[in-house]
Design a protein around this nucleic acid. Structure first.
Length: 454
RNA sequence: GGUGGAAUGGCCGAGAGGCGAGGCAAGGGACUGCAAAUCCCUCUACACGGGUUCAAAUCCCGUUUCCACCUCCA
């Protein structure tokens, strides 16, 4: 069996395809003009879960994730997001890109996401895009407007709208915003592949149509086809990219290859915080560093995500992160006492849950029942947890990290030991409170006090 | 207006037509000098109105409310 996952295009779960035992995967990556918030990270985690499950089924994965560092226009200011942030921080736009790109990788590592094989940058793939734009013009799928902008001709692609369910006619009004007819496009749904530089001085490149910069959608078509050898088995991204980004990407790629370039379109639903989509304007943005700063294991966030279906909107709260933090800690402690096995046996139940559209909530529920089942041996329990952890990625076999105690804390611990042996309970309780405020957990037993970090 | 989803107890959330997942919080108990941790127990819900069926949270029709997307977005 292999992973079967919900395909937005066909609107039903479909078995993952592969070529000679390898699944090619493309994941829409970040625009590196700011930190990724935990909602962004939920989508990046989805790619990781897919890749890990595919490997558990015995197939290889070749995975690419792009870094958008040019051409992503901001609607508010009609300016490139990179350049906008560059002005704000008063540093070179490429330095902005490298800064947030590094932080993106840092976040992925903290969430125990296995890196892709390659993270191609849009700014380093301009040649690829220029080639593709020329090819699209040559095929009659694109045209050069009077202002020097190269547009994709939406009507040239008959399947336009099949991913999102939108129809070209229905899109006409441009309902959300006051629609401004710019008069250069031939058709309202056409989009730009290459834009002339105009007044712009930074992040521009020469092209057959004069100096300028690429449109946002073309980078994914160019990089996915190039780096995944012309065909993508699985394409992953957030639900909001379904339209227009993926719709446009599909039109571009298919016009080039003349076939269906992507087998499966997988979309992750949004994360809500306090019942609303996490966004800057709503003021409810949470970063992974915020989670860590509150003393939570970043993998507690990972567990929170795993306990919800990737296709459901989920509402995150500090309470649920805290609960997940405690659960991971308990599991690690128990596994340490059960003993880790040398060889992990396949657990068909867990594998079946995962291969059934990444049903991670069922896996975690199953693990909780294994945890409580008195008919299982410790070795059997450990095996189930460690087998699942190959995909869950919660580092359940990790021994608690022992941080150095400060001399002050050591002193308080010794004082408390003495207070306890002389049965000075009020002093003992006071000292315990001080230790707990410093982030320790104290437990007393017949053999004396012991401590651990929260 | 178009498009894609959703509605389950104090909260979060699985649900396959057929004895009410699970978690968190809360309350009670065991253990403890007291706690913490751990373990045991308790708390019986499916938006509304119809329909199909021996049987509906689940299927069908309608209604209401909510979220998201409609050329910024993970």
């Amino acid at each position: 069996m292999v992973l079967s996952i919900y395909d937005t295009f066909s609107r039903k779960p479909s078995a993952i395809t592969s070529i000679n035992g390898t699944v090619t995967m493309y994941c829409c990556g970040p625009t590196v003009y700011r930190d990724a918030h935990v909602g962004n990270l939920r989508t990046f985690l989805l790619s990781d879960l897919i890749a890990r499950t595919i490997r558990l089924s015995g197939l290889n994965v070749e995975m690419i994730q792009n870094i958008t560092d040019v051409g992503h226009m901001s609607d508010d200011f009609q300016e490139d997001k990179m350049l906008e942030q560059s002005k704000k921080e008063k540093i070179d736009p490429f330095d902005i890109a490298r800064k947030y790109e590094e932080r993106f990788h840092h976040d992925l590592a903290n969430l125990n996401i296995i890196p892709a094989q390659k993270y191609p940058r849009a700014s380093e793939s301009i040649e690829l895009m220029l080639e593709m734009i020329s090819a699209l013009i040559h095929k009659g799928s694109a045209y050069v407007g009077e202002d020097g902008t190269v547009y994709f001709d939406a009507q040239s692609f008959s399947g336009y709208g099949q991913i999102s369910g939108n129809r070209l006619e229905s899109l006409k009004p441009g309902h959300r915003y006051e629609y401004v007819e710019d008069g250069v496009k031939k058709f309202h749904a056409d989009w730009s592949l290459w834009k002339p530089a105009g007044d712009r001085k930074a992040m521009i490149w020469d092209s057959p149509w004069g100096p300028g910069f690429p449109g946002w959608h073309i980078e994914c078509s160019a990089m996915s086809l190039k780096f995944l050898h012309g065909h993508i088995n699985v394409h992953v991204g957030g639900i909001d990219l379904r339209f227009p980004h993926h719709e446009n990407e599909r039109a571009q790629s298919n016009s080039i290859t003349g076939t269906e370039s992507v087998d499966l379109w997988v979309h992750g639903e949004h994360l809500l915080f306090e019942g609303r989509k996490m966004s800057k304007s709503a003021g409810n943005v949470v970063l992974l560093d915020d989670v860590i700063a509150k003393g939570f294991d970043p993998l507690a966030l990972r567990l929170c995500f795993l306990e919800n279906r990737y296709r459901s909107q989920m509402d995150l709260s500090w309470q649920s992160i805290s609960a997940a933090h405690d659960t991971i800690k308990r599991w690690r402690n128990k596994i340490a006492t059960w003993g880790t096995t040398q060889r992990i046996e396949i657990d068909p139940t867990i594998l079946a849950f995962l291969e059934n559209d990444l049903d991670t909530p069922r896996v975690t529920t199953y693990l909780r029942s294994v945890e409580k089942d008195n008919n299982l041996t410790d070795a059997q329990k450990a095996n189930a947890f460690l087998y699942a952890d190959q995909v869950l990625g919660l580092e359940l076999s990790r021994i608690q990290i022992v941080q150095e105690l400060t001399p002050e804390l050591i002193d308080i611990l010794e004082q408390r030991e003495r207070a306890r042996s002389s049965k000075n309970w009020s002093l003992s309780d006071e000292l315990r409170l001080r230790l707990e405020n410093a982030g320790l957990e104290i437990s007393d037993s017949a053999s004396g006090q012991s401590w651990s970090w929260r």
